[in-house]
Design a protein around this nucleic acid. Structure first.
Lengths: 231, 231
DNA sequence: CGCCGCCTTGACTCCCTTCAATGCGAGTGG
DNA sequence: CCACTCGCATTGAAGGGAGTCAAGGCGGCG
């Protein structure tokens, strides 16, 4: 038994959603093979990804890079409908791993690319997806580069709630370590920020993986203002 | 009179270069209007960019975001051949500004997109460009999130040299503030890191904007190892 | 119960920021 | 030609936010 997450909405791409996958499936018979993953299972390591692109059918997947010394940076979390494994010839160790039991569709890269470039409608939505992704990655770069730990954690919670379209019992499918690696922080700092938010009665937590936003304005204020004092 | 930069190679996209622009120019008559900018001039502010995409014909341009409190994050520097202004509906203040006197080609966004999606070869190279860009942005996210000030500055210098394909008299067209905003540091920390590199005889500087790599191995080592002690 | 993984908390250190002053080169005008 | 100014770069001192190291706490499962 494990936490079940709401699958109604994708983690990202609220605006440019699953139209792409629909087009892919209906427009041509490229439908890649399906792959089942248990929670914690690895989908690919670095070079493996060169030959395939992936799409989440169900579940949540994290994609991350590892530096020589073992530090990790989680590039992104993907859920239902999201395509991933798009970047290529990586110099760094690059991995994708299931957070929950997941089903993944695997497309042969070369064939997929050919299909996309040959089909204007596909090409258009794929371009859109990539541009949105690029834009979002940049926003997160700003976040990591210019925001305090408190701001990063607050905006992370805020985004989780938005993605799940709930304010109560928002599910946190990833571990503290994953969050830390996503935000460019340490696990301890993430904990302390969460504790501070609880102390200030801005959020409450039913368990370590489920929270409720009590004071949304205050949470937004946290994101805006360079609030200090995580300890 | 002002510093002249080597224009032989683009700042980025060494691998997926100007083929795109060639295709654009020859393949169809979409050639957008040209715009001349003096050093320091602004090409666009946020929403302005929604209707156009741009390409550097000559010169160097920086693209950056500004937070409410005035802190900035330089998304990227672009030079000859690079396309930019691709991300859309930004929530943040988003600006592009010329670093040197520059010539920019402006494409109407909608028409450009249509042309791209309708032309497989264009579509292919544009996709390639976007994926490369995405990949690079992620690498920089890792850098900002997990590297020390010293590592960031060292890898920045290293990249400058690579892009210009020189080891001596490498030109730094951007100000210290731009570098700091690009690396997620303060201007003072950048200076101190540079001073440390000079002190250790790893680089030497003819002037504040021109440097030479004396000990390349040591510079690479700086990038690899979480070297401390910027002071 | 007792182990195990994950999470939380505490104390201390240190890198980077902040605040502030000085240096330096180019352009200007007396 | 030199004094002055203005923007950018450099250096110094002090303080703080996040990292590091280490010790529990908590929940699930055999």
């Amino acid at each position: 038994m494990q936490f079940e997450i709401r699958k109604k909405t994708a983690f990202h791409d609220n605006k440019a959603p699953i139209a792409f996958s629909d087009a892919l499936e209906t427009g041509l018979e490229l439908a890649g093979s399906l792959k089942q993953l248990k929670a914690g299972e690895t989908l690919y390591f670095e070079a493996d990804s060169d030959d395939y692109c992936y799409q989440v059918v169900s579940g949540v997947v994290k994609e991350y890079n590892t530096l020589e010394d073992g530090r990790r940076q989680v590039a992104d979390f993907y859920s239902e409908g999201d395509m991933f494994g798009l970047s290529e010839h990586c110099e760094q160790l690059h991995t994708a791993e299931a957070l929950t039991a997941s089903t993944i569709r695997c497309y042969p890269r070369a064939a997929l690319m050919q299909a996309i470039t040959a089909t204007p409608s596909l090409s258009s939505s794929f371009l859109q997806t990539l541009m949105t992704r690029l834009h979002r990655t940049r926003e997160r770069m700003v976040m990591i580069g210019r925001m305090t730990a408190m701001q990063r954690v607050a905006s992370f919670l805020s985004r989780l709630a938005d993605d799940q379209s709930v304010r109560e019992d928002v599910q946190i499918v990833m571990s503290r370590q994953d969050i830390a690696d996503h935000l460019g922080l340490t696990i301890e700092t993430v904990c302390r920020a969460l504790t501070a938010l609880k102390r200030e009665k801005i959020v409450s937590m039913k368990s370590a993986r489920v929270f409720t936003i009590i004071n949304e304005d205050a949470l937004e204020a946290m994101v805006r203002r360079p609030q200090k004092r995580v300890h």
